[in-house]
Write a protein that binds this DNA or RNA. Structure first.
Length: 1021
RNA sequence: GGGCGAUUAGCUCAGUCGGUUAGAGCGCCGCUCUGAUAAGGCGGAGGCCCCUGGUUCGAGUCCAGGAUCGCCCA
């Protein structure tokens, strides 16, 4: 016989099921159909934050991609038109580092020797490889994007938009050259950010010289300050000595000044407070070097001078230390920068020139010794930062850098952020904190594969910022013919003419911060102020040939800006969310997004950071195979965004079990519908199941409607975790209440039950289709296959119509289920299994359940259920605290004690008298328990009492249930089909059970029952 | 150093407006149901609700101080 539904296997195989669905989507063009369906709908503008294209898909990235996909899918079900443009971040250090490693290059010098043009090509290849991998992984994850139409930030168009922004900032006086003190790796020739410093392994023990150096005071012959340093190479850059103003200093007999706290044993010739020393001038340690000539050295005050180590007088070299640099601003000190990019002394440092900081240390120590400036020279082991890439000890340098000033924008940024709705809300506060406290934005980087800063600084002092490629070509002196991309090295071969002095000017060598690349995205990809729509107009420069993206016109920008919603991990607050906000407020005065969903960090399932070398990293491909994309997505979506996600195979297993309940419910429907030859009707989905409905059917329909409403609320609050919770509760209700309660109807082929269950399962699947696109589409296709007129994919079926649930009915069943739960509890406490029928149950305090007497009787296998007071041997009365507390105040204690001790008397109206107070029935809570021969269970004001007295009839029927159970177990073990009929032979000892032969036959599908054997036997007929 | 947050069962976390016996899931032990279920149900063991003080009839919850941890900034 042809089956209506394709039977479902016992268990879903997520991996193969998903691959199958992917192939179907591909074949049927499901995504294209969805876009066509919504093309004229209202717009939902999502702007994708670009993912750094330097690796394949990681499970971390898959989290964010899932959230993006879920909400795009939800909005699509609701009929919104969307852009679906994916983005890749294609420039910057992360990409360079990967390529450097692959090429075996070890320094900036080696990159330059390798050749910047070839290096740029390798970087581009890396980006394209990564983009391909990320696309493949994302598709496997089920993410629906307009793949192939991606934006790549290394596009010339993207770069030009940034140029334009920078030119504008320059014209407003908000782009300037300044200084910055930074940790520096002399091998890599680059600064090290705070973020990089905070990585583990950066701080390592290191042995360094420990020098005490004399600095003779100018106007006090024979007196000298003594300073301490562990970095001899910084001494030539010394310009000041800092003292703690309120500390006591002493002049020792040997003529050396140190803090009293550092020389407790010494005899003081003179004492002075730090502030009294401020302003004194001294001879620098290397005044004879030409670079140092004419430098003033003086004592300055500094509250943070430590008296825990050194001498309490601190050597200050603003060119070589962060705090030193800050002090130079306050005290107007000269900044001496002794070493170059590679940590070697500049030529004007005399005999030191060309030496590295390490090589110089010994020579400096020796020189100081020869000149009698050294008090002592020893070795010290201390924690010192090293480069995370190459382990080289870091030094401090002051560098010339370009900055965007924030002062004028700070308030507008705060105002713009106030218009943004953040989920979770604290992330918005975090952004406010950042906006209030951040300094100017340093946008220059001394690297190669990045946005070329369009800044041309002439030796005459005039600065030009070029705003477009066109402008560059107009101003160019030469080199245009070889400019294949707006990128080093080609761009550097295009000098321009200075407007002021007509000299030829080259571009500054620096490239831009990658966050400029990402921040401009809502302008560059949406066609801000673009006069015309240019086909393929975004896919320029390096992105030519890898994308088809257009440059839209300004009308398009008006339509899609600002984004309705963006979502990224929390650290993007001061990165992408910030750079976008900054550029947007600068250009338009508005925030570039209306709502943000942020989320915390991913850790492994035991709460540790995932780390390649710790062996706890989960490979995305492995997760697809072993968990399945839907299970991964469920795990991501079940996570409250304000907490770290503990991701792993353990939690995945738990999720699979939950999904199995859903699967089994569908399988149950399919199996019985096939037995019955029942066909679903598509109209039922819109209109609700037709036919004569049982109360339980009404309940399930209401329950389903409630789910749709709850889920919509959750989606609209951007909280997938609430969708997950609502759906899990729903599945539990369908499986453990509706199906459980209705089994008999399914055996009897009750069409209404089939119809109602079908309706409810199908509607339920639609609710979670955005979360689990494969699983739901697979089941949808199975369950709607027989329907004429059903959309071929769940993703084309739209969001289910929201109908008002019958909340009274829902409350009624809730109460009913509480009664049944208590009844089970009472049975368990008394040790009487459910197979043993009992005579009576009394229910107290659950009025809503009173119309479900039959269901209670059946669930708890009792003959008679009544509602009323439980006559108990023990009466417990407790004060109703919220009522009595405010009324009695201090006296409450006495009343409470009296009630607890049983010292009360019952009043006629249901009230009580205790400790001299009359308490009305509203002021007390009454519980009755402990009835002789009965099992009583109570909670939340509901009490049930189960009559435990057994008579012969009850015992006999208990044995029948036992027998039925045993026979059905035998059926199962014998591998019989649900519909197979049997001949049943009982043991002679069970002859008395034949009184119930018809019943037994019905329950075991027996065509005959006799009692002629030694043991029960079954035989298939 | 400043800011934000956290601290509740072996683990991961809920805990509403301050209210009666502090909960869930997982794990462990026992029982049980099954004509969909490798599932489900019930019960048990397991708690210094970080500490100290305060407010209150009553504090896991509010206030103050402290400790520890995490994150952000400097």
């Amino acid at each position: 016989m042809a089956q209506i539904f394709t039977p479902l296997p016992d268990k879903p195989d997520h991996d193969s099921l998903e691959l199958e669905i992917l192939a179907i989507w591909e074949r049927e063009g499901t995504f294209e159909k969805l876009r066509d369906l919504n093309r004229s709908g209202p717009t939902f503008s999502f702007v994708d934050g670009p993912v750094t294209a330097n690796k394949g898909l990681a499970v971390h990235t898959a989290w964010g991609r899932t959230l993006k996909d879920v909400f795009q899918r939800y909005k699509a079900l609701q009929g919104f038109a969307q852009r679906y443009q994916n983005g890749f971040d294609c420039q910057g250090l992360w990409i360079e580092v990967g390529v450097e490693r692959e090429l075996g290059l070890n320094s900036k010098r080696e990159i330059e020797e390798y050749g910047l043009a070839e290096f740029a090509r390798k970087c581009r290849e890396k980006v394209i490889w990564s983009a391909t991998e990320l696309t493949r992984g994302s598709k496997r994850l089920g993410q629906w994007m307009d793949w192939g139409n991606d934006y790549f930030t290394f596009s010339d168009t993207n770069i030009e938009y940034i140029w334009r922004f920078l030119k504008l900032m320059f014209e407003r006086g908000q782009l300037y050259k300044g200084h910055r003190s930074t940790e520096w790796c002399p091998r890599c020739g680059t600064s090290i950010s705070q973020h990089e410093l905070s990585q583990s392994g950066v701080y390592q023990d290191k042995t360094d010289p420990s020098l005490f150096v004399r600095l003779p005071l100018r106007d006090r012959p024979g007196e000298a300050l003594v300073v301490w340093t562990t970095t001899p190479w910084t001494l030539p850059a010394n310009v000041a000595a800092a003292v703690k103003p309120d500390a006591e200093y002493i002049l020792q007999e040997n003529g050396e000044w140190v803090a009293r706290a550092r020389a407790l044993e010494a005899t003081a010739v003179k004492t002075a407070r730090g502030e009294e020393l401020v302003g004194l001038e001294y001879d620098g340690p290397f005044d004879h070097l030409s670079a140092v000539e004419g430098t003033e050295h003086r004592v300055i005050p500094w509250d943070d001078v430590t008296l825990d180590e050194g001498t309490g007088i601190v050597h200050i070299a603003p060119g070589c230390g962060g705090e030193d640099f800050e002090l130079s601003k306050v005290n107007n000190l000269r900044i001496l920068q002794p070493v170059d990019d590679s940590g070697r002394f500049y030529d004007d440092y005399g005999w030191l020139h060309g030496l590295t900081t390490v090589e110089a240390a010994d020579q400096i120590t020796a020189d100081l010794g020869e000149r009698g400036r050294l008090v002592s020279a020893e070795q010290i082991v201390h924690r010192y930062p090293h480069c995370w890439r190459c382990d080289t000890p870091l030094i401090f340098r002051i560098t010339d850098d370009w900055f965007l000033s924030v002062e004028k924008l700070r308030q507008p940024l705060l105002d713009a952020n106030a218009t943004v709705e953040w989920t979770p809300a604290y992330m918005g506060k975090r952004m406010d904190d950042w906006l209030r406290n951040m300094g100017d934005w340093n946008i220059s980087r001394r690297r190669y594969y990045g946005l070329p800063l369009p800044i041309y600084e002439c030796s005459c002092g005039h600065v030009t910022v070029v705003g477009s490629k066109l402008e560059l070509s107009e101003r160019a002196v030469s080199g245009l013919e070889q400019l294949e991309e707006l990128r080093r090295p080609w761009i550097d071969a295009v000098p321009i003419r200075c407007e002021t002095c007509s000299e030829m000017v080259s571009r500054i060598p620096e490239v831009g911060d990658v966050w400029l690349d990402a921040g401009i995205v809502p302008f560059a990809t949406l066609g801000w102020e673009s006069p015309a729509w240019i086909k393929g107009g975004y896919a320029t420069g390096a992105s030519r040939g890898v994308s088809t993206a257009d440059l839209p016109d300004h009308a398009y920008w008006e339509r899609w800006f600002p984004a309705d919603w963006v979502s990224e991990m929390r650290e993007q607050i001061r990165l992408w969310f910030y750079s976008q906000l900054f550029m947007s407020v600068a250009l338009t005065g508005r925030a570039p997004f209306r709502r943000v969903l942020g989320y915390e960090k991913m850790l492994d399932e035991s709460g540790r950071e995932m780390h390649g070398s710790w062996g706890n990293m989960i490979d995305a491909e492995d997760a697809f195979t072993r968990m399945g994309a839907d299970v991964m997505r469920w795990q991501y979506c079940a996570q409250p965004p304000n907490q770290n996600l503990l991701f792993g195979f353990g939690p995945a297993h738990e999720i699979k079990r939950k999904l199995l309940t859903l699967w089994n419910s569908c399988k149950f429907l399919v199996d019985y519908a096939n037995i019955e030859g029942w066909e679903p009707a598509w109209e039922d989905l819109a209109g609700g199941p037709s036919g004569e409905l049982d109360p339980l059917d009404h309940w399930l329909i209401s329950r389903t409607n409630a789910l749709v409403a709850e889920a919509a609320t959750a989606y609209e609050s951007w909280l997938t975790v609430d969708v997950v919770k609502a759906y899990e509760a729903f599945v539990d209700d369908v499986s453990n209440w509706y199906i459980r309660r209705s089994r008999r109807r399914f055996w009897d082929g009750d069409e209404t039950a089939l119809r109602t269950l079908w309706y409810s399962l199908v509607q339920g699947l639609r609710v979670v289709a955005p979360l689990m696109p494969f699983f739901t589409d697979h089941l949808w296709r199975g369950l709607t296959a027989p329907c004429v007129g059903a959309p071929e994919s769940i993703h084309l079926a739209g969001w289910p119509e929201v109908r008002e649930p019958d909340s009274a009915l829902l409350a009624e069943i809730d109460e009913l289920r509480r009664v049944v739960e208590l009844g089970r509890q009472a049975r368990a406490t008394a040790g009487i299994k459910l197979r043993q029928p009992l005579r009576a149950l009394v229910v107290d305090g659950a009025p809503l359940a009173s119309s479900h007497v039959d269901e209670i009787a059946e669930e708890l296998r009792v003959e008679e259920v009544s509602f009323g007071q439980v006559d108990a041997s023990e009466l417990r009365v407790k004060p109703n605290l919220p009522v009595l507390g405010p009324k009695l105040g201090r006296e409450l204690g006495a009343v409470r004690a009296a009630l607890e001790a049983g010292k009360f008397e019952e009043l006629p109206a249901g009230g009580f008298r205790a400790a001299g107070y009359e308490l009305s029935s509203e002021e007390v809570l009454v519980e009755r328990r402990g009835k002789e021969g009965w099992a009583v269970a109570a909670s939340d004001g509901v009490t049930v009492a189960l009559d435990l007295h057994l008579d012969e009839g009850l015992l006999l029927r208990g044995r029948v249930y036992d027998l039925i159970h045993a026979v059905n177990t035998m059926r199962k073990e014998a591998g019989l089909e649900l519909t197979d009929r049997i001949r049943l032979t009982l043991s002679e000892a069970d002859t008395d059970l034949l009184e119930h032969a018809d019943w037994i036959a019905r329950e075991t599908l027996a065509v005959s029952v006799d009692a002629s054997g030694d043991d029960p036997r079954i035989e298939r007929v």
